[in-house]
Nucleic acid binder design. Structure first.
Length: 461
RNA sequence: GGCGUCGUACCCAAGCGGUCUAAGGGAUCGGUUUGCAAAACCGCUAUUCGUCGGUUCGAAUCCGACCGACGCCUCCA
């Protein structure tokens, strides 16, 4: 089956072909560790996870790198404010990123290289660009010479930038669109600086990613991912450096996920309209947040609302009920799917540029069909097997079934006792007392679902 | 200002030239079931896809204009 991905460089869906037969190299722009991550950041990180899981479903082994940017203006600003030290600050938010990733069932990447561990390599990279005359030095700042690189403008209409040429930023760049590879030391940088042959300073963002990507994955990678806002200038600049220096195609596929919108604007720290992911995880389950994020296509904007989160939560309830009624006892997916008609359609949707909303629709359609059989009491062994396989295949991508769903929670003795009494009242047709007990049990956090012969206790959400 | 993406029911969201009198989820209202509920099931809720034109045998899907939202061009997932 062919996997199609929308490539930002061509603005169309393309059949995916990896460089090596069964292995995919994937570079994802990770967090700058200066502050608590927000939902918008994690929309992108969950998107990376989606890409990876779909690749795995297609039989690829994925070598994924997510970088950690720990050299950056905002980090320096924060350290300068005196509240916290450099190491402490970056470690704190690095850990937070990893922890939330774990909470959201995001598969671990193979590597999380940190900028500060690779400054030597960045210096070497910049030096090589200078040697090839793609970069020049102005008072210790090194800039990339966009005039020298004819292919500049992969992601943006270059005339736009030319128009802005008049607004020179006073750094002595030859062209407005030239960008920094190395920033010379300034007093406010303090100790956050490295020695180089051009004097003290630090690598600039675009160079950081260019070096980390090529160093960990080679001169041409299969897939490069990021949020749309990184298309230009970040990815443009990253790509320009690598392709100029190595004379290669930097990445065969560029995937960009859309923004999360809050209060009519993209969620962003500089705009101040932030929903901290940690806070959100206290309010909603990780599964709910994941589903909320995956129920829109990755290239569509998501307008945040609590209502959507609660819709997602209800969807999960429905899925969980189905999981229980089919008697699933493990979430381990061994890849054995034996694609039936519906499951095949599910996989095809995901392979069509990661169409998660459509795939979800197919899954629900399937659930409805089986529920109907359950209702008619005509669910066969084959139906059960098929359902289990579909659920596992579904969950291997969406990851929204919590393991606890498989285990019937122990009902507290007190609740059991009340339920037993209620059972007696029902037998005696003492409905008033039975209803009163049902209410009491509900207050204790348990719902009763009566069936003909017995009553079932379900944990209240 | 330039460039780009998007506008589908009460809400969310797929579909992107014919199988669309438009999937799926939430919500509402009927019905089956139930002592009553809950859960489940059945049914109703867009002859219509921002507006107006055009292309076509045929358009939600292509083209143009307009209106509206968002993004990029500056740090940003």
């Amino acid at each position: 089956m062919i996997l199609k991905l929308y490539n930002s460089t061509t603005s169309q869906k393309e059949d995916f072909k990896s460089i090596s037969p069964n292995i995919v190299s994937m570079y994802c722009c990770g967090p700058t560790v200066y502050d608590a991550p927000h939902l918008g950041n994690f929309r992108t990180f969950v998107f990376y996870d989606l890409v990876k899981r779909v690749l795995i479903q297609n039989g690829f082994e994925v070598n994924q790198v997510i970088n950690i940017t720990d050299i950056d203006d905002k980090i320096i600003d924060k350290v300068n404010s005196g509240a916290i030290g450099y190491k402490e600050l970056t470690a704190k938010f690095n850990d937070m990123f990893l922890q939330h990733s774990l909470s959201l069932n995001i598969q671990e990447a193979n590597q999380y290289p940190k900028t500060s561990d690779h400054v030597e390599a960045m210096i070497g990279f910049i030096k090589a660009l200078i040697d090839k005359e793609y970069a020049y030095n102005v008072d210790g700042n090194i800039f990339f010479d966009t005039e020298k690189y004819s292919k500049y403008g992969k992601f943006v209409n270059i005339e736009n930038i030319d128009r802005l040429e008049s607004e020179d930023d006073g750094l002595g760049k030859k062209n407005q669109k030239d960008f920094a590879l190395w920033k010379t030391w300034k007093e406010e940088d303090g100790d956050i600086t490295w020695e180089s042959e051009w004097g003290k300073g630090r690598p600039a963002w675009h160079t950081e990613c260019a070096v980390l990507a090529t160093q960990s994955l080679g001169k041409t990678i299969d897939i490069h991912c990021g949020g749309v806002d990184l298309k230009f200038p970040h990815h443009e600049n990253e790509s320009a450096q690598v392709e100029a220096l190595l004379d290669s195609v930097f990445s065969n596929y560029w995937l960009h996920s859309e923004h999360l919108i809050l209060e009519e604007e993209k969620m962003s720290k500089s705009l101040g309209n932030i929903l901290n992911i940690g806070d959100l995880l206290n309010q909603y389950s990780a599964e709910t947040i994941r589903l909320f994020l995956l129920s829109s296509h990755y290239r569509s904007k998501i307008y945040f609302s609590d209502e959507k989160l609660s819709d997602s939560s209800k969807m999960i309830d429905k899925i969980n009920r189905f999981v229980k009624s089919v008697g699933l006892d493990t979430l381990d997916h061994n890849g054995d799917t034996n694609p039936s008609g519906d499951y095949l359609r599910f996989v095809e949707s995901l392979n069509d540029d990661l169409n998660t909303p459509e795939a979800l629709g197919i899954f629900f359609d399937f659930i409805n069909k089986k529920n109907k059989k359950i209702h008619e009491d005509s669910l066969s062994e084959e139906d059960i097997e098929e359902s289990k396989k579909f659920i596992l295949g579904f969950n291997s991508i969406f990851q929204i079934i919590h393991p606890s769903v498989l285990i019937d929670e122990e009902v507290p003795e007190e609740v059991q006792k009340l339920a037993f009494i209620r059972e007696g009242m029902r037998d005696k047709k003492n409905w008033e007392e039975a209803d009163r007990l049902r209410e009491e049990i509900e207050k204790m956090g348990w719902l009763i679902e009566d069936s003909e012969s017995s009553q079932k206790l379900v944990r209240k959400k």
